[in-house]
Amino acid sequence: MKKFFVIALLAILGFYLTIAFLQIPFGQNRLGQPQDEATVGAYYLNNTKEKSAVSNVVTAIVVNYRGFDTLGEVTVLFLASTGLASILYRRKEEEVERINKPSSSLLQTGSKFLFPLVVLLGIYVFIHGHLTPGGGFQGGAIIATGFLLMLIAYQKYHVSHSMLTWVESLAGVLFVSIGLWGLITGGTFLENSYFPKGVLNSLISGGAIPIIYIAVGFKVAAELTGVLDILLNTKEEKSVPSNQNEK
């Protein structure tokens, strides 16, 4: 009965969603010509090249035009990792072996070989965030994946939490201080036009944008590694009272 009701509800919802989105023709140019600057997107496309000398427009939007939003976002990530740690808290004496069986030597050697390469790829991705697709979030996630490999392969591998905290805090302080420097010199938070801009499509270009994205990369890497470490270190508890018959 409930299933029938829900399916009817979803059918109505799907019908109206379809009607609504067929009004937005797929693939049609809704931006207008960038020179007219009729929409926000056209303004960004038209001005990014001159004003911030960044070739990846998405990076310019994420870091500069909507940089305040990004600051809020990394704060949300930080809050998520803190919340995870407080939800999955455990006492010191409850420390258990994370993985019962040692992993095979193939996995161990492979992860030891891959770990520096994965971290290098992540650093490449967020250093070139203003030139190629990618940036701080992607690079940080890739670095967290490298740490995840080591955490899975080695039982004794522990990420130092004080190091994570330091990296995370320093990156956050760097982000905010660059924003405040823009506030002092240019009058708005994260104002980029007073930083020296290089040549378009060279590694050192875009003023403060690459620096901010590198800071975001380190911050995201530290936060995601912290989340994975907390999740992996939760005590495996199979013998809870009401679940006696285990398979």
């Binding site: 998405v58 990618g134 995840l148 992996l232």
Partner: peptide
């Protein structure tokens, strides 16, 4: 391509691993 890279890094690797740990 930016969104594709993010989805590949976070959606495929990290979310799946979080589910598997759970």
């Amino acid at each position: 391509p930016d969104v594709a890279l993010t989805e590949a890094a976070i959606g495929i690797a990290l979310t799946t691993i979080a589910f598997v740990i759970t």
